[in-house]
Design a protein around this nucleic acid. Structure first.
Lengths: 109, 109
DNA sequence: ACGGTAGTGTCTACATCGTAGACTTATTCG
DNA sequence: CGAATAAGTCTACGATGTAGACACTACCGT
């Protein structure tokens, strides 16, 4: 994979939300996870566009699942690849290092 | 301030690096701080462009300083505003919440 | 003194990421 | 059947990330 495995912040959130749902997460649950954790609305467009980009980077994979209720079309279940986990780690470390020593700032308000 | 106080990842890094340098940080030192912490090159263009955008958002302020050595033109010293600190906190919390419970993933490699 | 070199900062241009909303297709309910 | 609902696709555009060429000034060596 390209060494330029940079991840945007929203991309990180999507990856993390998938991981939190355990293997083979469903879209709806992932979106809900992000909305609750980040306290912000996530539109379908934003969500799927980001998911597609992550797939193109090889950080996410998905498989179809059988429809279960009130749905149609292909139902996807997502998984984060090892590359995705590695990229996540890299991004986190960079920020952690910078935050190091400034943690007091993170506590207030 | 606008509710749209979103910060990109690089913007966060710039803000944090300024804070780490203490009040009135110099550009060179801030850049170096980022390069060392994130292990990546930071071009002048990327750096100043981001700084200007942060200033427009009211998250960074700067003042001129007297030249000290081997320099020319206006020498700037940067400061993060309270709004900047608040935005930083918000961004951090969103990701922290998502990382919560996945910390094992951050440790390996 | 003069050109080379280095330290700042500006400007332009483009790639990538973030985001909304309309559109499509298919299922359930009345 | 038609209305309401759900999952996913597509298009388009604004916000961020990033590089490199320019311009200006100060120091150095010859």
């Amino acid at each position: 994979m390209s060494p330029n495995a940079f991840l945007g912040e929203f991309e990180q959130m999507v990856l993390l939300a998938i991981l939190k749902q355990g293997e083979h997460a469903f879209a709806l649950e992932v979106r809900r996870e992000i909305e609750e954790s980040a306290h912000r609305k996530v539109s379908r467009g934003a969500f799927y566009t980001t998911l597609d980009r992550l797939e193109r980077k090889g950080m996410v994979e998905w498989a179809e699942a059988e429809p279960t209720a009130r749905r149609s079309g292909p139902l996807r279940r997502f998984t984060v690849t090892p590359e995705g986990v590695a990229a996540l780690r890299t991004s986190r470390r960079a920020l952690e290092t910078l935050w190091n020593g400034l943690d007091l700032l993170a506590e207030e308000g």
